[in-house]
Computed example of a mutant assay.
Amino acid sequence: MADDTRIRVTDRTPGEYWDARHADHDDLASGGHMGLDRPGNEIFYAQRLGTLLSLVGDLSSPAAPLFALDAGCGKGYFARALARCGHRVDAFDISPYVIDHALAEGGGPRYAVATLDEWRSPWPYDIVVCVDVLFHVPDDEEWAAGLRNLASLVRVAGRLIVTDEDTAHRTTRGARIAHRPTAAYRAELEPLGLRHTLFRPYGFRENRVGFHVFTRTR
C-alpha cells in the first residue's frame, strides 16, 4: 500500500519545490540545466550572461548607475554580475533557501524573499530582468499577475527582459514548465505601454528559449 503521507513533487508549493531543488543541486545546476554537467552549465550561464549584458548595455556610470531588478534571482548569479557592472541591483526569489545562499555570497545586490506578483519598490527600474522563471509558472493567472507586476516596475523608456521560447503555441513539459506564445506576452504587456522590441535566442545546443525585450513607451 502506498504511503499517503509522502509528498509528491506536484503537491509541493512553488517555494517548497525550489527550496528542495536548490538544496539538492549545485549553484549552477539548480537554476540552470539539470541535464548538463558542470562544464556544460558553466558555458550555459556564460552564454546567457553575455547576451543579457549586451541587452542591458553599458549606459551606467558611478555618477548615474542604472537601477536594475532581478526577479526570480535564484542563487544570485545574474544579480551579482549586474552589480559588478556598476548597476544598483535589487533581487528577489520565492525560495528562502536561495536568498540565504545569495546573501552569504554578497557581491552588492539587495536581496529579499517575494513572489513575482507581490514585489513592490519605492522607485521604478531602468531594467527588470526575469531569466528562466516565467515558464516555470504553470498557472496562467499566476503567470499573468506576475508579468503585469513586473511591467509596472519599469520606468518610461526602461526595459523588461524576460525569457521564454519565441513560439506561436503554448507548450507544456511536465508539471512545472509551460512555454507561452509570444502573442500572449504581447497581449498582457502592450496595453500597459510596453512594446516588444527584440527577441534574441540563447543559441545554446537544442535550447529554444531566448530573451524577449519589451520597452516601455508610455
Rank of each mutant, 00 (worst) to 15 (best):
L134W: 01
R148S: 12
H87F: 03
A83T: 02
F44Y: 15
S54L: 06
L192G: 11
G15C: 05
Y125H: 01
T217I: 14
R205D: 15
R195F: 08
R48V: 11
L82A: 01
T10V: 14
R195L: 12
N41W: 01
G158W: 07
S60T: 15
Y125K: 00
T197G: 11
I43H: 15
A83E: 02
A20L: 02
G74S: 07
G76E: 00
I7T: 15
A104R: 12
V162D: 08
V137F: 10
G106D: 11
G72T: 00
T10Y: 13
G108P: 00
D37F: 04
H22W: 13
E190L: 09
Y111N: 02
S30Q: 00
H25K: 02
F92W: 06
H169F: 13
R200T: 15
T167P: 08
I177R: 09
F135L: 05
P39V: 03
R155Y: 04
H179N: 15
L36S: 03
R208L: 14
L52R: 02
D27W: 10
T182S: 10
T51F: 04
P124N: 10
D126H: 09
I94M: 05
G15P: 04
L116G: 05
Y125P: 01
A68V: 05
S95L: 02
A178L: 06
D164E: 05
R155P: 01
L36I: 01
D27P: 04
L153Q: 08
R218C: 11
L189S: 07
T51R: 11
